[in-house]
Amino acid sequence: MTPNTTIRAEGIVKTYGRQRALDGFELDATTGVTGLLGPNGAGKTTLLRILATVLAADEGSLRILDRDPLEPDDRRHIRRRLGYLPQDAGFHRGFTAFEAVDYVAVLKEHTEARARHDEVRRVLDLVGLSDVAGKKVRALSGGMRQRLGLAQALLGRPELLILDEPTVGLDPEQRMRFRDLVSEAGHGRTVILSTHQTEDVAAVCSQVVVVHHGRALFTGGVAELVELAAGRVWVDSDRDPRALAGWRLGAHRYHHIGDPPAGAELVEPGVEDAYLLLVGPHVAPSDANEERDAA
């Protein structure tokens, strides 16, 4: 294990009843942003909960920050260096934004009140919520609550940041700001995020893991992922029924992936194309391309 490997997971298995949420998952993550890309139900959330030490794996070996999350003392050490944004981060609706983050700060062992409050203000400022610090959580918009969740995860400048679907509920502008924030957070620390937005991955991730049926189908850089689709993406003025998947780009312009016919007009592939080639067209990761339909 290299010294800067933050997470090393081998053969992780987690079963709920008869369903295998994780089926021998492998993951190595170091400093930078690792994006888990996959359809709903692929096992992303289960994996992130295990990495955040709130869930124990049934099988497999896991080292986080060079410690064993199953050992109580080690687990506490991990938790001290961890920031976690769960999928449905909730807060007491009667709290103000400030109180909600302050509460988590207390649990993160920031015991000295004044220093803690300064830290709460710092993270609220980072996510652009300074001006609503005194507002009740129930009065905040969905996007603001999502940022509030991120704020608490940033408390204490954690070395490992685990973000489950952090861009859900954000409008396009907030999503841009958010990507900046995550890229910045990725300097000098490890960020693991899950998303089903291929654009998020292309924008911020240094490593991509395509998750499907509880396994890592692909692990590597964004460029390597895109490379998988080289020569397999073309456009045509009509829909091509032989394509694996295709969608309309505009009047008489159709985007196709699959095995191109001879003489097809090949185009540069994107993350989306590579992803669809890997997991199959029926599990669209993105809700941005609603016009796509399987051929």
Binding site: R76, R80, Y84, A89, G90, K108, E109
Partner: peptide, 10 residues
């Protein structure tokens, strides 16, 4: 409602 976050704290 913050139980999941609480569970990840030391």
């Amino acid at each position: 409602p913050a139980h999941e976050i609480v569970a990840s704290t030391p």
